[in-house]
Write a protein that binds this DNA or RNA. Structure first.
Lengths: 142, 142
DNA sequence: CTAAAACCTGACGTCGACGTGAGAGGCAAG
DNA sequence: CTTGCCTCTCACGTCGACGTCAGGTTTTAG
């Protein structure tokens, strides 16, 4: 298929597909006219790339990973890097979970305020869920 | 405390603290000489800001959230936005979890390759998918 | 054939959270 | 006073994954 169809089927832009090729993430055969032609499995490949990008991996890391997946070239160093990437993702998940809980407590508290008509619980003293909402602004203007 | 101490105690750069002020996330009293002075609770404030940044919230969203937390101004619209941010974080967590599992299977499979000396399992069963849409390619060991 | 898509290669623009360097001023100590 | 560190305000630089515009070519439809 040509680049437009691949873009449509994967949901990524044509520009992005060219960018992937530029980064060595995706290769294509060329027609006599110079147009790119992709095999069916390019769809899955692009989806994998997207997933890895979404995970926060840089294109350079993805390139190496793909070399492993596609060419079967895996060195212990690469594996170590990928494992470390994995751990970083784990860390991010933990961060996000913490932040989500925090945000949750803020939202919950604020919603309660709307109902009670009182100022934010942060001022009243600590969080409703106790998720670290002790943002006691013992400060300036009231 | 002055900006250098706040930076040291929070682990963020001086530049970042000035940036937060520029974005309306953090305010400071000024000495006659124009230097910023922060109260103790600024430490917690900065940590909250960092956590929200880490969660992927943009400074604009954080500003509004802080207005809620600090000033007690929460509109239903703001709450809806924050709730939607929360859901986005949830989505990100799901994305990351999926990507991590995927990465995991690649690493595990590649490690198995190193031991067996065989090419990547992606090739062995590649057929149409190439990059492996199926995460069943994980090796026997774990 | 023509016209219209779709595609091509550059190459500059974007956005966000700062980094970094310049040049000048504040602040405590001697 | 001077020294020396910290701080101030611009204001341009960065990095990554593209967006977008320009100008030309290939493919497809009629």
């Amino acid at each position: 298929m040509r680049i437009g169809e691949l873009a449509a089927r994967t949901g990524v832009s044509v520009r992005a597909l060219r960018y992937y090729e530029e980064q060595g993430l995706l290769d294509a055969e060329r027609s006599t006219g110079g147009q790119r032609h992709y095999p069916e499995n390019a769809v899955d490949r692009v989806r994998l790339i997207q997933q890895l990008y979404a995970a926060g991996l840089a294109s350079r890391a993805i390139v190496e990973l793909l070399h492993c997946v596609v060419d079967g070239n895996a060195t212990p160093e690469l594996l170590a890097r990928l494992a470390s990437e994995r751990d970083r993702i784990d860390g991010r998940i933990a961060e996000l979970t913490g932040a989500r809980d925090r945000l949750d407590s803020v939202v919950t508290g604020a919603a309660a305020n709307l109902r009670t008509g009182r100022p934010c619980p942060a001022r009243a003293g600590a969080g409703t869920t106790g998720a670290g909402a002790r943002r006691r602004e013992t400060g300036p203007t009231g």
